[in-house]
């Protein structure tokens, strides 16, 4: 038993993703278009200036390329639980001798690995070729960047996980998920690099989980922050994952209680 069923779920989701080819090509195109637009906007904002507040144009470009490409493979199905609650198949799931969360994570990871190989890498190569970006500050930074990106996915997944648990009480979680995603887009630096936020605001954002998703890995990649701050970034990511997962798990227990008491 052990991990085998979860690997099978991940593999299944990996394979089923490959069935939707058009969706996949459109996804890459979408990433490229957004990247192009963002980079062009900042190019015209920069004009002839070398740097703004010590941030060079290439740093901005690198931020966009990395965070948009990461975003392209950070796959989370926000409606995994709610769709199952709405059509009633949650009861079938409850009767399976595997963990629901494990299955949910495995399914998402399968998709994520697919997108990492067939979306992230091609998009990144295209971006490097056509737009160009900075090399990592050092080999160590690059390794830490990868670690931090994995934890970033963990944070993103935990946020979605926690919000999904609201499906037990709400018939439609679409609005909440949309608001959540707007928060992620704006506050994670994938739209507006957090360097350009007012001081007080970036201070606040630093204490939210959003900065830990894309911005921390980018900062590490660029070598903008020192060893102590890098350590702090990792601590923040891990703490956020734990906090969100614990809240999510508590909501899950409460939700299940509601289900067995009130019946579906």
């Amino acid at each position: 038993m052990g991990l085998t069923p979860y690997l099978a779920f991940a593999k299944k989701s990996f394979l089923s993703k490959s069935a939707y080819r058009l969706d996949h090509w459109m996804g890459i195109l979408n990433t490229m278009i957004r990247l192009f637009i963002f980079v062009e906007i900042y190019k015209s904002l920069y004009g002839t200036r070398e740097a703004v507040d010590g941030i060079t144009m290439t740093m901005v470009t690198t931020n966009f390329i990395l965070s948009l490409c990461l975003e392209s493979f950070f796959a989370v199905d926000d409606f995994y639980l709610s769709s199952r609650i709405n059509n009633g198949s949650i009861a079938t799931e409850m009767l399976l001798p595997v963990s629901f969360h494990g299955r949910m994570l495995a399914t998402n990871l399968g998709t994520a690995v697919f997108k990492l190989i067939f979306h992230f890498i091609p998009a990144l190569l295209l971006a490097i070729f056509f737009i160009g970006m900075e090399a990592p500050a050092g080999a160590g930074n690059f390794v830490l960047f990868i670690l931090s990106a994995i934890l970033g996915y963990g944070v993103l997944w935990s946020i979605s996980f926690m919000f999904q648990m609201l499906s037990f009480w709400l018939i439609n979680v679409w609005a909440i998920m949309t608001i959540k995603n707007v928060f992620i887009n704006v506050l994670s630096g994938s739209m507006i690099p957090l360097w350009f936020m007012p001081k007080w605001m970036s201070g606040v954002i630093n204490f939210t989980p959003f900065a830990s998703i894309y911005f921390s890995p980018v900062q590490i990649y660029l070598g903008n922050i020192g060893a102590a701050e890098i350590g702090m970034c990792f601590v923040k990511q891990i703490v956020w994952i734990l906090v969100l997962m614990i809240i999510g798990k508590l909501l899950w227990i409460k939700g299940q209680k509601k289900m067995v008491v009130q019946g579906g």
């Binding site: 009861a91 409850m94 009767l95 209680k257 008491v261 019946g263 579906g264």
Partner: peptide, 9 residues
């Protein structure tokens, strides 16, 4: 039946 399946308390 749902009680026996553990879907209800």
């Amino acid at each position: 039946l749902k009680l026996l399946a553990g879907l209800l308390q």
